[in-house]
Write a protein that binds this DNA or RNA. Structure first.
Lengths: 169, 169
DNA sequence: GCCGATTCGTTGAGATCTCAACATTCACAG
DNA sequence: CTGTGAATGTTGAGATCTCAACGAATCGGC
Protein backbone atom coordinates (compact mmCIF):
# COMPACT_ATOMS: atom_id res chain seq x y z
CA UNK A 1 0.00 0.00 0.00
CA UNK A 2 2.59 2.51 1.09
CA UNK A 3 5.50 3.19 -1.20
CA UNK A 4 8.46 3.06 1.15
CA UNK A 5 11.77 4.71 0.49
CA UNK A 6 14.16 2.51 -1.42
CA UNK A 7 17.71 2.17 -0.02
CA UNK A 8 19.05 5.09 -2.02
CA UNK A 9 16.21 7.34 -1.04
CA UNK A 10 16.58 6.24 2.54
CA UNK A 11 20.24 7.13 2.46
CA UNK A 12 19.52 10.47 0.84
CA UNK A 13 16.86 11.38 3.32
CA UNK A 14 18.94 10.46 6.33
CA UNK A 15 21.98 12.25 5.03
CA UNK A 16 19.90 15.35 4.45
CA UNK A 17 18.39 15.07 7.91
CA UNK A 18 21.78 14.59 9.49
CA UNK A 19 23.51 17.34 7.55
CA UNK A 20 20.93 20.00 8.26
CA UNK A 21 20.69 19.11 11.89
CA UNK A 22 24.45 19.12 12.36
CA UNK A 23 24.96 22.36 10.46
CA UNK A 24 22.26 24.33 12.19
CA UNK A 25 23.02 23.02 15.64
CA UNK A 26 26.66 23.86 15.17
CA UNK A 27 25.96 27.37 13.93
CA UNK A 28 23.47 27.93 16.70
CA UNK A 29 25.95 26.78 19.30
CA UNK A 30 28.65 29.04 17.92
CA UNK A 31 26.33 32.01 17.79
CA UNK A 32 25.20 31.37 21.33
CA UNK A 33 28.73 30.88 22.58
CA UNK A 34 30.30 33.89 20.85
CA UNK A 35 27.47 36.37 20.92
CA UNK A 36 24.72 35.04 23.17
CA UNK A 37 22.20 35.32 20.38
CA UNK A 38 19.98 32.39 19.54
CA UNK A 39 19.86 31.68 15.85
CA UNK A 40 16.19 32.58 15.61
CA UNK A 41 16.79 35.99 17.11
CA UNK A 42 19.71 36.62 14.81
CA UNK A 43 17.41 36.15 11.84
CA UNK A 44 15.05 38.74 13.23
CA UNK A 45 17.82 41.27 13.75
CA UNK A 46 19.12 40.73 10.22
CA UNK A 47 15.74 41.29 8.61
CA UNK A 48 15.21 44.42 10.63
CA UNK A 49 18.66 45.73 9.76
CA UNK A 50 17.87 45.39 6.07
CA UNK A 51 14.55 47.16 6.19
CA UNK A 52 14.12 50.86 5.51
CA UNK A 53 14.36 52.78 8.76
CA UNK A 54 15.45 49.48 10.24
CA UNK A 55 11.85 48.89 11.16
CA UNK A 56 9.04 46.59 10.04
CA UNK A 57 5.48 45.72 10.86
CA UNK A 58 5.36 42.64 13.03
CA UNK A 59 3.53 40.65 10.38
CA UNK A 60 6.03 41.59 7.67
CA UNK A 61 8.87 40.72 9.99
CA UNK A 62 7.25 37.38 10.74
CA UNK A 63 7.02 36.54 7.04
CA UNK A 64 10.59 37.49 6.31
CA UNK A 65 12.10 35.70 9.25
CA UNK A 66 10.16 32.49 8.66
CA UNK A 67 8.57 32.87 12.05
CA UNK A 68 5.07 32.42 13.38
CA UNK A 69 3.30 35.46 14.78
CA UNK A 70 3.40 33.99 18.21
CA UNK A 71 7.05 33.12 18.14
CA UNK A 72 7.93 36.55 16.85
CA UNK A 73 5.89 38.23 19.54
CA UNK A 74 7.68 36.33 22.28
CA UNK A 75 11.04 36.86 20.65
CA UNK A 76 10.62 40.59 20.18
CA UNK A 77 9.60 40.86 23.81
CA UNK A 78 12.97 39.39 24.79
CA UNK A 79 14.83 41.55 22.33
CA UNK A 80 13.08 44.55 23.79
CA UNK A 81 14.21 43.52 27.25
CA UNK A 82 17.76 43.53 25.93
CA UNK A 83 17.27 46.99 24.48
CA UNK A 84 17.92 45.78 20.94
CA UNK A 85 14.47 46.44 19.55
CA UNK A 86 11.71 48.91 20.36
CA UNK A 87 8.04 48.62 19.57
CA UNK A 88 5.99 51.52 18.31
CA UNK A 89 2.32 51.60 17.53
CA UNK A 90 1.48 52.01 13.89
CA UNK A 91 -0.19 55.30 12.96
CA UNK A 92 -2.21 54.12 9.99
CA UNK A 93 -3.41 50.90 11.57
CA UNK A 94 -3.98 50.90 15.27
CA UNK A 95 -3.77 47.12 15.37
CA UNK A 96 -0.27 47.23 14.05
CA UNK A 97 3.00 47.29 15.88
CA UNK A 98 6.24 48.38 14.33
CA UNK A 99 9.46 46.82 15.50
CA UNK A 100 12.49 49.06 15.20
CA UNK A 101 16.10 47.99 15.59
CA UNK A 102 17.88 50.22 18.06
CA UNK A 103 21.44 51.42 17.62
CA UNK A 104 22.42 49.09 20.39
CA UNK A 105 20.73 46.22 18.60
CA UNK A 106 22.49 47.06 15.38
CA UNK A 107 25.78 47.14 17.20
CA UNK A 108 25.14 43.71 18.67
CA UNK A 109 24.32 42.38 15.23
CA UNK A 110 27.40 43.95 13.71
CA UNK A 111 29.50 42.34 16.40
CA UNK A 112 28.00 38.91 15.87
CA UNK A 113 27.91 38.87 12.08
CA UNK A 114 31.57 38.27 11.19
CA UNK A 115 31.82 35.18 13.34
CA UNK A 116 28.57 33.83 12.04
CA UNK A 117 29.48 34.36 8.40
CA UNK A 118 32.77 32.62 9.05
CA UNK A 119 30.85 29.70 10.51
CA UNK A 120 28.59 29.51 7.49
CA UNK A 121 31.62 29.45 5.22
CA UNK A 122 33.41 26.88 7.31
CA UNK A 123 30.51 24.48 7.67
CA UNK A 124 28.67 24.92 4.40
CA UNK A 125 30.46 26.64 1.54
CA UNK A 126 34.02 25.52 2.09
CA UNK A 127 33.31 21.79 2.06
CA UNK A 128 31.37 22.03 -1.21
CA UNK A 129 32.57 22.50 -4.77
CA UNK A 130 31.31 25.54 -6.67
CA UNK A 131 29.11 23.25 -8.69
CA UNK A 132 27.62 21.72 -5.58
CA UNK A 133 26.89 25.17 -4.23
CA UNK A 134 25.00 25.95 -7.41
CA UNK A 135 23.11 22.68 -7.16
CA UNK A 136 22.28 23.36 -3.55
CA UNK A 137 20.84 26.73 -4.48
CA UNK A 138 18.64 25.25 -7.17
CA UNK A 139 17.49 22.38 -5.01
CA UNK A 140 16.67 24.65 -2.10
CA UNK A 141 14.84 27.10 -4.30
CA UNK A 142 12.81 24.29 -5.76
CA UNK A 143 11.85 22.94 -2.37
CA UNK A 144 10.74 26.36 -1.22
CA UNK A 145 8.62 26.83 -4.33
CA UNK A 146 7.00 23.46 -3.83
CA UNK A 147 6.04 24.30 -0.28
CA UNK A 148 5.21 27.98 -0.61
CA UNK A 149 2.61 29.06 -3.16
CA UNK A 150 4.54 32.31 -3.13
CA UNK A 151 2.03 34.84 -4.43
CA UNK A 152 4.52 37.54 -3.61
CA UNK A 153 6.96 39.00 -6.10
CA UNK A 154 9.17 40.33 -3.33
CA UNK A 155 12.50 39.13 -4.65
CA UNK A 156 13.97 39.30 -1.20
CA UNK A 157 16.86 41.60 -1.68
CA UNK A 158 18.86 39.37 0.52
CA UNK A 159 21.49 42.05 0.52
CA UNK A 160 24.75 41.97 2.31
CA UNK A 161 25.23 41.48 5.99
CA UNK A 162 24.80 44.43 8.31
CA UNK A 163 27.23 45.86 5.81
CA UNK A 164 27.77 49.39 4.84
CA UNK A 165 27.76 51.28 8.07
CA UNK A 166 28.47 49.01 10.96
CA UNK A 167 28.40 52.27 12.83
CA UNK A 168 24.91 53.37 13.60
CA UNK A 169 24.62 57.08 13.23
CA UNK B 1 38.31 42.24 7.18
CA UNK B 2 35.46 39.85 7.06
CA UNK B 3 34.73 38.14 3.80
CA UNK B 4 30.99 38.59 3.46
CA UNK B 5 28.79 36.43 1.34
CA UNK B 6 28.50 37.64 -2.22
CA UNK B 7 24.97 37.97 -3.64
CA UNK B 8 24.93 34.46 -5.03
CA UNK B 9 26.18 32.94 -1.82
CA UNK B 10 23.71 35.01 0.11
CA UNK B 11 20.89 33.72 -2.06
CA UNK B 12 22.09 30.17 -1.69
CA UNK B 13 22.33 30.39 2.04
CA UNK B 14 18.92 31.92 2.50
CA UNK B 15 17.30 29.47 0.15
CA UNK B 16 18.89 26.61 2.06
CA UNK B 17 17.78 28.10 5.35
CA UNK B 18 14.26 28.65 4.09
CA UNK B 19 13.92 25.26 2.45
CA UNK B 20 15.08 23.25 5.42
CA UNK B 21 12.98 25.24 7.84
CA UNK B 22 9.86 24.93 5.71
CA UNK B 23 10.35 21.24 5.05
CA UNK B 24 10.99 20.22 8.61
CA UNK B 25 8.33 22.43 10.12
CA UNK B 26 5.81 21.08 7.66
CA UNK B 27 6.74 17.46 8.32
CA UNK B 28 6.72 18.08 12.04
CA UNK B 29 3.29 19.67 11.88
CA UNK B 30 1.90 16.79 9.85
CA UNK B 31 3.38 14.21 12.18
CA UNK B 32 2.00 16.04 15.17
CA UNK B 33 -1.42 16.47 13.60
CA UNK B 34 -1.81 12.93 12.30
CA UNK B 35 -0.03 10.93 14.95
CA UNK B 36 0.72 13.18 17.89
CA UNK B 37 4.39 12.35 17.69
CA UNK B 38 6.97 15.13 17.66
CA UNK B 39 9.55 14.65 14.95
CA UNK B 40 12.35 14.19 17.44
CA UNK B 41 10.53 11.36 19.16
CA UNK B 42 9.74 9.73 15.86
CA UNK B 43 13.45 9.53 15.15
CA UNK B 44 14.02 7.76 18.42
CA UNK B 45 11.30 5.23 17.76
CA UNK B 46 12.68 4.52 14.29
CA UNK B 47 16.19 3.87 15.53
CA UNK B 48 14.92 1.59 18.22
CA UNK B 49 12.76 -0.29 15.76
CA UNK B 50 15.80 -1.01 13.62
CA UNK B 51 17.99 -2.28 16.40
CA UNK B 52 18.31 -5.93 17.30
CA UNK B 53 15.77 -6.79 19.97
CA UNK B 54 14.40 -3.34 19.31
CA UNK B 55 16.58 -2.09 22.10
CA UNK B 56 19.68 0.06 22.46
CA UNK B 57 21.92 1.55 25.09
CA UNK B 58 20.98 5.14 25.76
CA UNK B 59 24.30 6.41 24.48
CA UNK B 60 24.07 4.42 21.26
CA UNK B 61 20.53 5.61 20.76
CA UNK B 62 21.64 9.19 21.31
CA UNK B 63 24.32 8.86 18.65
CA UNK B 64 22.00 7.34 16.10
CA UNK B 65 19.19 9.74 16.61
CA UNK B 66 21.40 12.84 16.50
CA UNK B 67 20.36 13.70 20.01
CA UNK B 68 22.17 14.94 23.06
CA UNK B 69 22.22 12.70 26.09
CA UNK B 70 20.10 15.14 27.97
CA UNK B 71 17.50 15.49 25.30
CA UNK B 72 17.28 11.77 24.89
CA UNK B 73 16.89 11.24 28.59
CA UNK B 74 13.98 13.66 28.76
CA UNK B 75 12.43 12.26 25.59
CA UNK B 76 12.63 8.63 26.68
CA UNK B 77 11.00 9.60 29.95
CA UNK B 78 8.02 10.92 28.00
CA UNK B 79 7.94 7.91 25.73
CA UNK B 80 7.97 5.72 28.79
CA UNK B 81 4.97 7.62 30.15
CA UNK B 82 3.17 6.80 26.93
CA UNK B 83 4.08 3.15 27.27
CA UNK B 84 6.02 3.13 24.02
CA UNK B 85 9.44 2.48 25.50
CA UNK B 86 10.71 0.70 28.60
CA UNK B 87 14.02 1.15 30.35
CA UNK B 88 16.04 -1.74 31.68
CA UNK B 89 19.29 -1.63 33.58
CA UNK B 90 22.25 -3.02 31.73
CA UNK B 91 23.73 -6.22 33.15
CA UNK B 92 27.34 -5.76 32.03
CA UNK B 93 27.60 -2.08 32.94
CA UNK B 94 25.63 -0.89 35.89
CA UNK B 95 25.81 2.69 34.68
CA UNK B 96 24.02 1.74 31.52
CA UNK B 97 20.36 1.84 30.70
CA UNK B 98 18.79 -0.01 27.81
CA UNK B 99 15.79 1.44 26.07
CA UNK B 100 13.45 -1.10 24.56
CA UNK B 101 10.61 -0.38 22.16
CA UNK B 102 7.38 -1.96 23.39
CA UNK B 103 4.87 -3.63 21.10
CA UNK B 104 2.60 -0.70 21.71
CA UNK B 105 5.38 1.68 20.69
CA UNK B 106 6.06 -0.29 17.57
CA UNK B 107 2.38 -0.20 16.71
CA UNK B 108 2.32 3.57 17.13
CA UNK B 109 5.32 3.89 14.86
CA UNK B 110 3.81 1.57 12.27
CA UNK B 111 0.67 3.67 12.29
CA UNK B 112 2.56 6.93 11.86
CA UNK B 113 5.08 5.83 9.24
CA UNK B 114 2.98 5.69 6.05
CA UNK B 115 1.76 9.25 6.45
CA UNK B 116 5.23 10.49 7.25
CA UNK B 117 6.82 8.77 4.27
CA UNK B 118 4.14 10.25 2.06
CA UNK B 119 5.02 13.66 3.44
CA UNK B 120 8.71 13.16 2.77
CA UNK B 121 7.93 12.17 -0.79
CA UNK B 122 5.53 15.04 -1.30
CA UNK B 123 7.76 17.74 0.13
CA UNK B 124 11.22 16.52 -0.81
CA UNK B 125 11.55 13.83 -3.44
CA UNK B 126 8.66 14.64 -5.73
CA UNK B 127 9.66 18.24 -6.41
CA UNK B 128 13.21 17.25 -7.34
CA UNK B 129 14.58 15.57 -10.45
CA UNK B 130 16.41 12.25 -10.02
CA UNK B 131 19.65 14.06 -10.68
CA UNK B 132 18.89 16.63 -8.02
CA UNK B 133 18.15 13.86 -5.56
CA UNK B 134 21.55 12.38 -6.29
CA UNK B 135 23.18 15.78 -5.88
CA UNK B 136 21.38 16.32 -2.62
CA UNK B 137 22.68 13.02 -1.31
CA UNK B 138 26.26 13.87 -2.20
CA UNK B 139 26.04 17.36 -0.81
CA UNK B 140 24.49 16.21 2.44
CA UNK B 141 27.00 13.43 2.84
CA UNK B 142 29.83 15.89 2.30
CA UNK B 143 28.47 18.32 4.87
CA UNK B 144 28.15 15.57 7.43
CA UNK B 145 31.72 14.44 6.81
CA UNK B 146 32.99 17.97 7.18
CA UNK B 147 31.30 18.40 10.52
CA UNK B 148 31.75 14.96 11.98
CA UNK B 149 35.31 13.71 12.31
CA UNK B 150 33.70 10.30 12.16
CA UNK B 151 36.42 8.23 13.79
CA UNK B 152 34.04 5.34 13.73
CA UNK B 153 34.04 2.78 11.01
CA UNK B 154 30.50 1.92 11.80
CA UNK B 155 29.23 2.42 8.31
CA UNK B 156 25.89 3.09 9.83
CA UNK B 157 23.82 0.52 8.14
CA UNK B 158 21.31 3.20 7.39
CA UNK B 159 19.99 0.75 4.90
CA UNK B 160 16.62 -0.73 5.27
CA UNK B 161 15.36 -1.75 8.59
CA UNK B 162 15.80 -5.30 9.67
CA UNK B 163 12.62 -7.23 9.37
CA UNK B 164 9.21 -5.93 9.86
CA UNK B 165 10.25 -2.34 10.30
CA UNK B 166 7.97 0.08 8.58
CA UNK B 167 10.58 2.63 9.16
CA UNK B 168 11.15 5.53 6.88
CA UNK B 169 12.87 7.85 9.26
C1' DG C 1 44.43 -2.91 45.05
C1' DC C 2 43.87 2.17 44.61
C1' DC C 3 42.89 6.81 43.24
C1' DG C 4 42.17 10.14 39.67
C1' DA C 5 40.00 10.74 35.25
C1' DT C 6 36.41 9.54 32.31
C1' DT C 7 31.94 7.86 30.89
C1' DC C 8 27.01 7.20 31.64
C1' DG C 9 22.66 8.81 32.22
C1' DT C 10 19.82 11.88 34.94
C1' DT C 11 18.12 16.05 36.79
C1' DG C 12 16.61 20.94 37.43
C1' DA C 13 16.46 25.49 35.86
C1' DG C 14 15.85 28.50 32.34
C1' DA C 15 14.87 29.56 27.55
C1' DT C 16 12.30 28.95 23.44
C1' DC C 17 8.59 27.08 20.60
C1' DT C 18 3.82 25.60 19.64
C1' DC C 19 -0.92 25.86 20.00
C1' DA C 20 -5.28 27.72 21.05
C1' DA C 21 -7.78 31.48 22.76
C1' DC C 22 -8.35 36.31 23.01
C1' DA C 23 -9.12 41.61 22.53
C1' DT C 24 -8.69 45.02 19.34
C1' DT C 25 -9.14 46.99 14.97
C1' DC C 26 -10.11 47.07 10.22
C1' DA C 27 -12.73 46.02 5.82
C1' DC C 28 -16.86 46.09 3.62
C1' DA C 29 -21.33 44.62 2.28
C1' DG C 30 -25.96 45.81 3.42
C1' DC D 1 -24.21 53.70 9.80
C1' DT D 2 -23.98 49.06 11.22
C1' DG D 3 -22.91 44.49 11.88
C1' DT D 4 -20.29 40.48 10.47
C1' DG D 5 -16.05 38.46 9.25
C1' DA D 6 -11.16 38.87 8.77
C1' DA D 7 -6.66 40.35 10.27
C1' DT D 8 -3.26 41.88 13.81
C1' DG D 9 -0.63 41.00 17.57
C1' DT D 10 -0.55 39.28 22.32
C1' DT D 11 -0.93 36.08 25.96
C1' DG D 12 -0.77 31.80 28.84
C1' DA D 13 -0.19 27.06 29.24
C1' DG D 14 2.19 23.22 28.07
C1' DA D 15 5.89 20.87 25.68
C1' DT D 16 10.54 20.50 24.30
C1' DC D 17 15.40 21.81 24.17
C1' DT D 18 19.79 23.50 26.11
C1' DC D 19 23.11 23.93 29.51
C1' DA D 20 25.53 22.99 33.60
C1' DA D 21 25.97 20.21 37.51
C1' DC D 22 25.61 15.89 39.61
C1' DG D 23 26.01 10.81 41.52
C1' DA D 24 27.28 6.47 40.19
C1' DA D 25 30.13 3.25 37.84
C1' DT D 26 34.06 2.10 35.09
C1' DC D 27 38.70 2.48 33.37
C1' DG D 28 43.78 2.90 33.68
C1' DG D 29 48.19 3.76 35.33
C1' DC D 30 50.91 2.79 39.12
Amino acid sequence: MTRWLDPEEQQTWRAFLGATQLVFEQLDRELQRDSSIPHGYYEILVRLSEAPERSLRMSALADRSQSSRSRLSHAVARLEDKGWVRRETCASDKRGQIARLTDQGFAALAAAAPGHVAGVRRHVFDPLTPDQVRQLREISTRLVEALQPEPECLATVVGQAPTASPVPS
